[in-house]
Design a protein around this nucleic acid. Structure first.
Lengths: 344, 344
DNA sequence: TTGAAAGCGCTAACAT
DNA sequence: ATGTTAGCGCTTTCAA
């Protein structure tokens, strides 16, 4: 086995053909070439075939930058996420990517590094280059969000602020499902392990859990904030043990899995002694041990709907921005079960 | 708990300020504004401050499309991956994103859906809009790759073809590490569970494994191809059991984990009866059960280096494209151990 | 140091 | 149905 084939020669870079090249080669005006591509009806069938053939031969592709300059439309959308490597966002990205492609739009991806300042800068920098933004789990304060929305079409995912289109998961219903599940297994209380303080969805999750708990007369406590990663697990797990909780609901799956790893390390049986529930249903929640009970969101749908909302905005310029709520569903796996000492 | 705050009023969209707006407001020529931004030295300090202040006030940001039209450079790079949701590519994306941002470049992300045709179309469509491509695990045949490289600067990740810059993982060394590890535990043979037939890295992995096995006088077999996902696990695991292998090396971690799930289901002990090794060290290989022994690649580095290679190409237009080999390292976890019946 | 003018590639009137 | 012209926002000669 040799090392990978070493590149031998530098490929020669060819100049890209322009509309004028095609026009000359085809013996027509540039505008005719333009029409042949954009308004196929308004040019003689025969001329059109000829032009297209010449274009093909020359390897001509219209220059999007030039088009954008004229029309003000770039046919490009930007998707900004706090952390590209977080598996939660993979679904949103995929869905947005798919919807964008379907609408003939290019998707630009930006990582804001969980940093409001970086997010703002990206929006500013990308603003003139895109037709709109999908902001997933934006960390921007409401007023900045509104200001950004004055300059660019914006659709939010799992974040809501008046005047801006958004797609959010139905946490009210989802958290109720979680609490019903725990209550049905005899749990009389649970602990919520909080994530980042600025997280809009985190706030909604906790609010929903509390409200649902009240219905069942269950006691709740909120610990944290913890890192929403495996690394947040040990601290959170130890706090849970100290409190003697029979059930915990974690801010997200990564934290929940981190908690379970720590509990296993300390010889605590899940779900025998403690039930664990997460949010997100990420890849891995199905094969961790024990498999994690978690609230699934339709992340791909969310990404796609957000893109569609942006496309709508472009067309119906007058209408009020839409707020869509996507269903959530509880995926019950091995990590949750009867409360210790409860009779079935 | 109310449903998410309903958007109330449509944000008014403001016209974006242009260089002429700034010029007028500042009482200077457009060219002076341009220089104030791009050639700070060639304009009076005082004028410059004034122009910049006015620009700030008007919320002016240079329009990248207009710049691109003039210069031919878009300050944008495209990164194409076969499947955005595959955690393996998350690292590549993150690394590329980081390096691009550091170089002041915008990153466009494209999902080729493991589909050569989609990949080619994306390259063609994006070509005029970007300064270059990072192609991660490209599924394109060599000749198409070369043709694309004639029109655009290209850097490959985990793929190599003469004349095109690339960054590849050191599979020769990595596979040797895997085989040494198995041999040291008394395994006399192993089975390789293949992934997609077109996968360049898959071919390299198998070739490396075979070569290393030969050194140790070990017997090998290649099964598959299987889906490189959890879903590929059952078929692969059953084949392994039928063959009575003591050790398996899977195309990637997802497949390896899928295999382990199936083996657990069938009551086969890992690593007691079968040792399992994967490739990629994805998130989850650390918390699956048992934790997976796997060959780690420096994916973030790979993404970053590929971007750097592209930037280099832009500067040193004459030099031969670079081929970089990145080290790999075996992460030994619980899923691999002594061969059954081998004496320590 | 600054301004005027031309032009990047393309599309959209307008004219023929 | 097709050609001509102007102009999108910006940078870049070339003059002043």
């Amino acid at each position: 086995m040799a090392t990978p084939q070493p590149p031998e020669r530098r490929a020669e870079r060819r100049r890209r053909a322009t509309i004028t090249d095609v026009a000359e080669a085809a013996g027509v005006a540039a505008s005719t070439v333009s029409r042949a591509f954009t308004r196929p009806g308004r040019v003689n069938q025969h001329t059109r075939d000829h032009v297209l053939a010449v274009a093909e031969e020359l390897g001509y592709t219209p220059n999007p930058a030039a088009r954008a300059l004229e029309s003000g439309r770039t046919n490009t959308l930007a998707l900004l996420v706090p952390d590209i490597t977080n598996p939660y966002f993979a679904g949103v990205i995929k869905g947005a990517e798919r919807a964008a492609a379907a609408a003939g739009l290019t998707l630009v991806l930006g990582d804001t590094q969980e940093n409001p300042a970086a997010e703002e800068q990206l929006i500013r920098r990308l603003g003139p280059a895109v037709d709109g933004f999908v902001l997933s789990a934006s960390r921007l304060p409401d007023d900045e969000l509104r200001r950004a929305a004055e300059l660019n079409p914006i659709a939010l995912v799992n974040r809501a602020t008046p005047g801006v289109a958004c797609v959010v998961a139905d946490y009210d219903n989802g958290t109720r499902q979680i609490v019903d599940h725990l209550a049905s297994h005899g749990h009389r209380s649970f602990v919520f392990l909080g994530g980042p303080a600025e997280s809009w969805s985190g706030a909604r999750r906790w609010a929903g859990l509390r409200a649902a708990a009240e219905v069942h007369g269950m006691t709740t406590a909120r610990f944290g904030p913890y890192l929403p990663t495996l690394a947040g697990g040990p601290a959170a797990a130890d706090a849970v043990l100290a409190a003697g909780a029979s059930a915990v609901v974690a801010h997200n799956d990564m934290l929940a899995i981190g908690v379970m790893l720590r509990l296993a390390e300390r010889g605590v049986d899940v779900p025998g002694e403690v039930s664990v529930v997460g949010f997100d249903n990420i890849v891995g929640s199905d094969f961790c041990s024990p498999a994690l009970t978690t609230l699934a969101e339709r992340t791909e749908d969310a990404g796609a709907r957000a893109v569609e909302a942006l496309v709508q905005q472009a067309h119906a310029r007058a209408s009020a921005p839409a707020a869509r709520v996507l269903p959530t569903q509880l995926v019950v796996r091995r990590s949750s079960g009867p409360a210790p000492g409860s009779r079935p």
